[in-house]
Amino acid sequence: MFAAIGITFEESEYFIQEFRRTGAIDRTVVFSNLANDPAVERISTPRMALTAAEYLAFEKDMHVLVILTDITNYAEALREVSAAKKEVPGRRGYPGYLYTDLAQMYERAGRRLGKKGSITMIPILTMPEDDKTHPIPDLTGYITEGQIILSRDLYRKGIIPPVDVLPSLSRLKDKGIGEGKTREDHSGVLNQLFAAYSRGKESAELMTILGESALSDDDKLYAKFADAFEKQYVNQGNDTNRTIEDTLTIGWELLSILPERELKRIKEEYIAKYLPKQ
C-alpha cells in the first residue's frame, strides 16, 4: 500500500517504476496525491490508504506494508485548513490537535488477536531544517515504535543508505530477535556494535582535535572500527539484499577488529562459536 502525499511526480514515479521493476506492482495499491493536487485531498489520502489496508489485512488475511510519504506535507495541509478555519494555532502554526490527528492515523497499524493479517507502517517525513525537535518528527516519535534517522554527514561521505545508527531506534527490536526468530547471538552482537560504534565515533572526534598520537591503542582500534563499520555495515548500496545471517557475519568480522577482551556485551559461548579466528 503506497500513499503519495503531496510529493513530486518524480518521486512518485520512482516508486511506481521501482514496484514495476521488482514485480511488486501487481500486489501494490497506490493512492496518489501529488504536489499540484488539492491540499484538502491530501488530508484524506493516508486515510484512504489505511482504510484499504485494514480491509485487506483484517478481512483478507494479508500482511500489508503501508508506506506514507511525505507526512510533512500532510501536516502542512492540516495547518493550511486549520488556518483557514481561524483556529488558534499551536507550535509553529500547526493546529493544537496535530498530535491527536497523527495518532489517529499511526495507531491504525498493528495486529489484531484472532486475525492472520497485519499492517506494518513506514511513514516517511522530512525534518524541516534537519531539526528533529520540530513538531512533526517530535510528535511522530512519541507515537511510533522508534525511528530510522538519515544523516546528511553519512550521505556526504557517500554512504548509501545513510542511516544514522546511533539516534535510530526500533522499540520492538528485542521482541523480534533471538533464537527461533533470527539467531541466538543477535542481541549480543547488536548491543556490542552499538557500544563500539558509539565509542569509535568519540575516538575519531578526539583524533581530529588532539591528533592520532594522543589516542591510546584501544581508542585507535575503536576509531578504525567506526570507520570500517560505516563503510562495510552501513554502506551496502540500494541493490544489495542481505540476509540476517550475512548481516550478523559482517557484524562479527567488524568486531574482530577489536581485542577480544573488549567484547563485554556478548556471552562467552557465542564469542567462542562465532568470532572469526585470526
Partner: peptide
C-alpha cells in the same frame, strides 16, 4: 543491515523514516 541487525522491524510495527 542497519535495520535488520540493529533496528529490527517486526510485523505490525510503525517505524518512521526521518529524512
Amino acid at each position: 543491515s542497519t535495520i535488520d541487525g540493529l533496528n529490527t522491524l517486526v510485523r505490525g510495527q510503525k517505524l518512521p523514516i526521518f529524512s
